[in-house]
């Protein structure tokens, strides 16, 4: 990397690191230290290919997600767990009043942090980055079938952790079913 390339790389990092850090933080379930480390690793790889990259942001995001899922593969031999230290969920569900939605989001956030890294990566890609299934599959280097099955399991796990998301428990509240409304 020559001086000019290094300048452009630094400018890219300065401009895009806030947005990239947001994705990394979601991927790590809110662990900002792990997120920064993840982003730094992805940026180091990006620097190595800098002059050949047509779309640095697309590349760094791809590395970000793949690196995280790769980490998942290492961790899963020890048990499916998350890297974030997450408080236990409260026993009481969200109240059905004006504060219900905010409380529900907190419950969902905690539940997201308790998913496996791979499950969370799928949901972040689908629901935060708005990637179609095929793009998720290409990004993570797996089949569309795997994207679907992992997303399905992630949503099922969310429903277990937040019973209010379960259609049966909440009279028709279903993640993935846009036609059904959440009670508030």
């Amino acid at each position: 990397m020559d001086d000019e390339e290094e300048r452009s790389f630094r400018a890219f990092v300065a401009a895009r690191s806030p947005a990239l850090m947001r994705s990394a933080t979601l991927l790590t379930g809110g662990d900002t230290h792990a997120a920064e480390d993840l982003l730094q690793t992805a940026l180091a790889k990006t620097a190595g290919r800098w002059k050949r990259l047509e779309s640095p942001e697309a590349y760094v995001r791809q590395v970000l997600y793949r690196q995280q899922v790769s980490l998942w593969r290492l961790l899963r031999s020890h048990r499916e767990t998350t890297v974030a230290d997450v408080a236990e969920l409260p026993d009481t569900p969200a109240r059905e009043d004006g504060t219900g939605a905010a409380e529900l989001r907190i419950l969902v956030r905690r539940a997201l942090a308790r998913l496996t890294i791979r499950q969370r990566a799928m949901l972040v890609l689908r629901y935060f980055e708005d990637c179609p299934e095929r793009e998720v599959a290409e990004l993570l280097g797996c089949s569309v079938g795997t994207v679907r099955s992992t997303t399905h399991r992630a949503l099922a796990r969310l429903r277990t952790l937040v019973p209010e998301l379960d259609p049966a428990a909440a009279c028709g509240l279903g993640v993935g079913n846009s036609s059904v409304e959440v009670r508030q």
């Binding site: 990092v13 300065a14 690191s17 993640v175 409304e181």
Partner: peptide
């Protein structure tokens, strides 16, 4: 709806994220 709830949760969470030190990160 629940899809929207998930999207809102992720967006709200991401917006609370503090930016890393840009030049230092590079």
């Amino acid at each position: 709806n629940a899809d929207q709830l998930l999207r809102d949760t992720l967006r709200e969470w991401s917006e609370e994220t503090s930016a890393p030190a840009g030049r230092d990160l590079a």
